[in-house]
């Protein structure tokens, strides 16, 4: 019998680590990977809670999150590619043309 706190705690920690990574890393692709980390944390939370509450809605939601994550990956990496074609760099510090 797994205490309910476990998946919740692990999910929270994964989310926090992912958030830290998004803020700290300057390589666009690594940032993207950290985002996936955050999503995993959320998924874990969903699964854990639905396991405890015996609801099917949790896993269903997780399924949808995965679908969205896949779509996001496709589009996001396409964007990274396009930007790289223009600026020859994925360094986030170089992207400040939205300034002002």
């Amino acid at each position: 019998m797994i205490p309910i706190g476990f998946p919740l705690a692990v999910g929270a920690i994964l989310f926090a680590i992912g958030a830290f990574g998004v803020l700290v890393r300057r390589n666009a692709i690594v940032v993207f990977m950290c985002i996936e980390l955050m999503l995993n944390g959320v998924n874990l939370t969903f699964i854990g809670l639905s396991d405890r509450l015996r609801l099917i809605d949790g896993p269903v939601f997780v399924l949808f999150i995965m679908a969205v994550a896949a779509a996001e990956a496709a589009v996001g990496l396409a964007i990274v590619l396009s930007v790289y074609r223009r600026k020859q760099s994925v360094h986030l510090g170089d992207f400040d043309s939205m300034k002002g």
Partner: peptide
């Protein structure tokens, strides 16, 4: 960033902990 993430993580943990308290018995 570290501080922000620690705070956020703490909040989520807290949230989870409180949620546990109201969850029905397994």
């Amino acid at each position: 960033s570290l501080l922000a993430c620690i705070v956020l993580g703490g909040q989520l943990l807290y949230l989870g902990w409180r949620a546990v308290a109201v969850a029905p018995a397994a």
